[in-house]
Structure formats: structure tokens, C-alpha cells
Amino acid sequence: MTTLLVADHDNRVLSDATARALTALCALDDAVHVLVAGHQARPVAEQVAKLHGTGRVILVDDAAFAHGLAEPLAALILSLAADYRVIAAPATSGGKDVLPRVAALLDVMQISDVVRVVSPDTFERPIYAGNAIAVVQSTDEKKLLTIRTSAFAAAGTIAVAVPIEEVVPPQGVWLARFEGETLSSSDRPDLASARIVVSGGRALGSAEKFQEIIGPLAERLHAAIGASRAAVDAGYAPNDLQVGQTGKVVAPDLYIALGISGAIQHLAGMKDSKIIVAINKDEDAPIFQVADYGIVGDLFEIVPELEKALG
């Protein structure tokens, strides 16, 4: 039997999350078919076709899939489900939105946020904001999984692309209607896949200061920018930069936390980073318990020194 992976993309570019999920699924020893449902999304299918581990690409092109809405996508996945033992998606906002809908209609209990494949029916996933790891064994015939992408490296590319098969989607009446979107544009690397992340917390004090302090350091390090919930709530940074239990989960080579206390909900999103640096003026801040390098002091003084030292 085969695995179906639902690709995450914006109709032009395949997200790195898909390549990471592919790595996780390759551990299952099954062939992996990757579903690209989108609108004029052939370029995405072509990218998928060159990923190591893709057995076949299923391309479905229809305006109904332009914005990744859950109803048509769930109906499509359901129409393909019979052929697959495992149906998976990266645990992105899109994957989390659609996959439980499919699971319920297949009468399967989904396993969310898989961080390790133990065997074809047993998986590890974090619970309680990462304060524990549950090893769970599914008794359902089909396995529905979302994959926590920070736990897996991205699959590499191959020289010869696998075939792309076009499939006609099921027709239906979809009730939710797309009205609009505000996408953040940034010239910084993508938070979920960057090698270095510079994150700011409530201590930054304003959106201006956040930009003024975090921006140049991130620029110098070619890093992505992250933020704590407190910084996002206060409007210093947009919501899509939030790192944590309810935001994005990242595991870069280097994570620099500036003026972030280190609440468990924040740690849930970054404590698997390879190296953690914390700068905080409170020497008892919990962030220091996970930091490899800590500096106790005022970030407004230390960050400019840091930039100078970096040259």
C-alpha cells in the first residue's frame, strides 16, 4: 500500500514543509504519492516531481483549490483515499485545517504533529506544549498523520523527475467562500526553514524598536525573524512570526532570543533548536534554562555590540 502526502504550496512555490514531511514518510517504506491541489499550480507539481522520495505526483488543477480551502480539498482527498494506507500532510496551517476533516469522514483518529516514525503504526508526538512525548500506536486501518516539519530535514532533489498525473476533482457545492487575504511579505528567509532565527519579545517595547533592533541583526546573520506571543499581541510583529505552542515550531541551527522570558508555551516552539542564545536582563528568566549561551544584560546595549563584533 501507498502513502498520500498533501503538498503545501501557494500555487507557485512548494513550501519547504512538504519536503520535510516527505522525509518523515520515507521512513514508512511505502511509495509516496504527492497530491498537488491548486489553481494553475503545475510549477509546484514540477518541483515535487524532483524531490527525492516522491513516487508519483498527482496534480489537480481547479479554481476551487486556489486558496486551499478545507471543504473542496477534503472532498478531493477523500475521493483518492481508497488507494492509500497512510494519508499525511505537513502540520502547517493548511494541513491542520484540512486533514482532521478527512479523518472524521474516514472514521480515523488522526495523529497530529508526528515528530518520529517508530514503526508503520506507531509514532511519537509532543503533548502538553512539548513537556512530554507520547508514543502512540494507531489501531485504525488507515493512518492519518500531520507531520511536525521542524523534526525532519528536507528531502533533497533528484535529476530525473517522476511522472505527473493529472486528475479531475470531484464536483461539489462548497459553502465557505474566500473573501480576501493579507499576506506578509518579507525579504527575510522563511521562519519555518531558516538556518538562523532572531526572535524578539515584549522587551522590545514598540513596533519601531522591534524593527530597529531585530531587523539589522537578522539582516547581518541572513536570519529569519521570530517573535513571542507577547510581542505579536502588542503589535510589534505580525502574527505569522509567532513562535510557540500556538504559533510556528522551529528548530534552526541557531536561535537568538532577545528579551523573551521563556514561558513554556514559547519554549514549545523553539527548544529543539541546535544552539540557543538568550539575552535577557533578568538572570532568573527561564529562557536561560534552555540556552547554550546566555548574556544577562540590557538588549538595547548588547545587540549593537553584537553587530559590531560580527563586523
Binding site: L254, I295, V303
Partner: peptide, 29 residues
Amino acid sequence: RLKIVAVRPPAGRKPGIRVATASELVSDL
């Protein structure tokens, strides 16, 4: 539907160090 095989604490991180200055940090990194 899901059998709990085990629930374990997450892997711990090894203790870090305090550095005094930004330049010390940069040389370590």
C-alpha cells in the same frame, strides 16, 4: 483508537554557559 505505548519526558538540553560580553559570544559562535 490510539493506544498509548508510553509517555516520556522530552530529551533534556545540556546545561549552557553564561558569557559576559557580545564579543565573547561572537567568538564562541
